[in-house]
Simulated scan of single mutants.
Amino acid sequence: MSVYFNKRRKWWEYYFRHNKRPYTKAGFKTKKEALAEEAERKKEVKQPQRPRTEQIDMDFLTLCNRRLDYLAAYRSDRHYQDTVYLAKRWVKQWSDKTVHEISTESVQNYLIEVCKAISAQTANKELRGLRAIFNFGVKKPNRWFNHNPTDDLDFFPVEQKKKYVPPIKDVIAVLLAASGEFQDYLWTIALTLGRMSEVNRLEKSDLDFENGVVTLYTRKSKNGNLTPREIPMTAKLKEVLLN
């Protein structure tokens, strides 16, 4: 069906193909509006004089939602939520624009304001996110358009600072200051050297007390698959996990 209701976004969308080229738009409040817009768009694309090389005139809001749907299906929840947060900022900036109406200058001016108001690190993070959003539409298998306004933009210079690594005595002091389940949680992180997301994902089936092994899972590969790694279970870690 070319017109459908997006339950996640709570609005109507249309999608159809003509001469192997996709056409899509989202954000309609009613099915009637989506059908009317789709019918008008079909009339336009079926005109015989329409240039064959013309790309989709996709609005920026639709592009963002297509990307978010992809991330929800293929990437970690954290990656998805981070992009949702950034996309809300971008939509405020360009919600009334099509992809082809967003210029390199417009993106650069936006990022400069982010750099001034927040930091160069944040501006660089947003540049990476915007570049990924546009590349999602440019590259295979989508190829909805060939315009990426971030291509010629450079990252902002950032002052690299040495990361603070607490000495072991400070780590132990924090562990001893905690109590109950929170202390067990911190011990598990310290003794496995695991990420918080890995420890939060632990299940009983990941604990092999007989062989003294803990299996942690993380999403580090390009396709977003959970990748396991085994950690030796020390006597203290076993005590904490059995608690």
Rank of each mutant, 00 (worst) to 15 (best):
A173N: 05
Y80G: 03
V213Q: 07
F16A: 08
L241Q: 05
V171G: 03
N6S: 09
T215F: 05
R17E: 13
Q81W: 10
E101P: 03
F60K: 00
V84I: 05
L191Q: 01
R8K: 14
W90D: 00
W144R: 04
R195T: 04
E181H: 10
V158M: 06
C115T: 12
K162T: 09
E210G: 05
S119Q: 06
R41P: 01
E239P: 03
P228S: 09
K31L: 11
F145E: 02
C64Q: 03
L86V: 13
D59R: 00
V84L: 03
K97I: 12
T218A: 15
L35V: 11
T234C: 08
V84C: 03
R52M: 07
E159G: 08
L63T: 01
K222L: 13
T122A: 02
R50H: 06
K238G: 08
K20I: 10
A87T: 05
I133D: 00
C115N: 12
E13L: 15
L86R: 10
F28E: 01
P51T: 10
A123M: 02
V138S: 02
K238T: 12
A173W: 06
K236D: 09
K88T: 09
R131Q: 09
N148G: 04
T215G: 03
R41L: 15
C64P: 02
D152R: 09
Q47E: 14
K162R: 07
K43G: 09
L216A: 04
V91I: 15
L63R: 00
A117M: 11
E198V: 02
L175S: 06
R143H: 15
P48I: 15
E181L: 14
F155C: 08
F60D: 01
K139H: 11
T192M: 02
D206W: 03
Y14D: 04
N109Q: 15
L237V: 06
N19A: 06
G212A: 15
R8N: 14
K220W: 09
V99Q: 00
L176E: 11
E181D: 11
G180C: 02
L68T: 08
S2V: 07
A117N: 10
T30P: 02
L237M: 07
R9F: 12
V165G: 03
V158T: 05
H100R: 09
L35M: 10
R75T: 10
V240R: 00
K7T: 05
L226Q: 08
R75W: 05
L241M: 11
D206M: 06
K162H: 11
E38P: 00
D170Q: 05
V213W: 08
R21W: 07
C115A: 15
D206R: 07
L176F: 12
T104S: 13
V114T: 01
A36Y: 10
Y15K: 03
F134L: 13
V114H: 00
S221A: 13
S95P: 05
V114I: 07
Q93H: 09
